[in-house]
């Protein structure tokens, strides 16, 4: 590369690089530094000690919340996958008319243009004691009076988060399925394989990158969520992001909150790099 070319590529690269440094690298570094600080109520003093991390290990409530968050994120990703895969499959392989396919695809993606808060709040109006579900059950006589069992629990959170994040599962799976040439399924049938086996041996492996990408996105988004627990979660619905928020807010313990955030960041980065490695493994397959 000549000096001019180098200068030019630097000019092209610098805005995103600057953005990443200023808005990602710097804040995370600050967080990391804070996580080693000490609390001397009501202020924090610079230090380098692992007390905050020790605290996370010592007090079992943090591990409990972390495990619960992993469980809920896992359930959300699982249900999103179970619902999204057949839907995407149906759109790609069964819907013949492009206009119908586009409409059904947009039906899933369009809610992304609506405020997240509004979409989560919707479930409150569906599941609440004055909600749509209760009025229906009472009016049909299935229940004699409105029940409060639908809202403020982990099931409501999983339901809400699945609804909110399912587009992120549908999109990559749809893209992966759409890339599979129809002739591959025909070839499998031609070579004597039935439909189920063809799905398991051809379609599923070739859509695995979409599944992994969708799972990663859905899992990481649900893992870091703190709105759904706040809106529809109950007393046992606190997730890790809520704990972090409270450490930076009411508890006024930024160093501990930072340590938690760093732990969370490490987990998410671990998941993303694992998924990235998987995708690289399958790279070049459908080219």
């Amino acid at each position: 590369m000549t000096a001019v070319q180098r200068l030019r590529s630097a000019a092209v690269l610098s805005p995103p690089l600057l953005w990443t440094v200023v808005f990602m690298f710097v804040p995370y570094s600050i967080l990391l530094v804070y996580s080693f600080w000490k609390t001397q109520y009501p202020i924090f003093v610079p230090a380098f000690q692992l007390g905050n991390y020790m605290e996370l290990v010592r007090d079992p409530q943090y591990l409990r919340v972390l495990l619960r968050t992993l469980k809920i994120a896992g359930l959300v990703s699982f249900f999103a996958l179970v619902l999204a895969y057949p839907y995407a499959y149906f759109l790609v392989f069964k819907v013949k008319r492009p206009s119908v396919r586009l409409t059904l695809y947009m039906a899933v993606v369009a809610p992304l243009w609506v405020s997240y808060l509004l979409r989560a709040y919707t479930w409150k109006t569906i599941l609440g004691t004055q909600g749509v579900l209760n009025s229906f059950l009472v009016s049909t006589g299935i229940l004699s009076e409105p029940s409060s069992i639908f809202l403020y629990n982990q099931a409501a959170m999983v339901l809400t988060l699945t609804y909110v994040f399912i587009p992120f599962m549908v999109m990559p799976i749809y893209a992966a399925l759409e890339k599979i040439p129809p002739s591959l399924k025909e070839a499998s049938a031609d070579l004597g394989e039935n439909r189920l086996a063809t799905f398991l041996k051809v379609t599923l492996p070739l859509s695995m990158t979409g599944i992994v990408a969708g799972f990663t996105m859905t899992f990481c988004l649900a893992f870091g969520d703190f709105i759904a627990p706040f809106l529809v979660g109950g007393p046992d619905g606190v997730m890790i992001a809520n704990v972090i928020a409270s450490q930076f807010g009411a508890a006024l313990n930024w160093p501990l909150g930072s340590a938690l955030a760093v732990v969370m960041l490490v987990i998410v980065l671990g998941i993303i790099s694992a998924s990235d490695r998987f995708e690289r493994l399958g790279a070049g397959r459908l080219t």
């Binding site: 040439p181 002739s183 591959l184 025909e186 070839a187 499998s188 031609d190 039935n194």
Partner: peptide
């Protein structure tokens, strides 16, 4: 899958 014929597809349809 029940016929004793086999096809060579235009795009070859090899499993990638």
């Amino acid at each position: 899958n029940k016929r004793a014929v086999n096809m060579v597809f235009q795009d070859y349809a090899l499993f990638p």
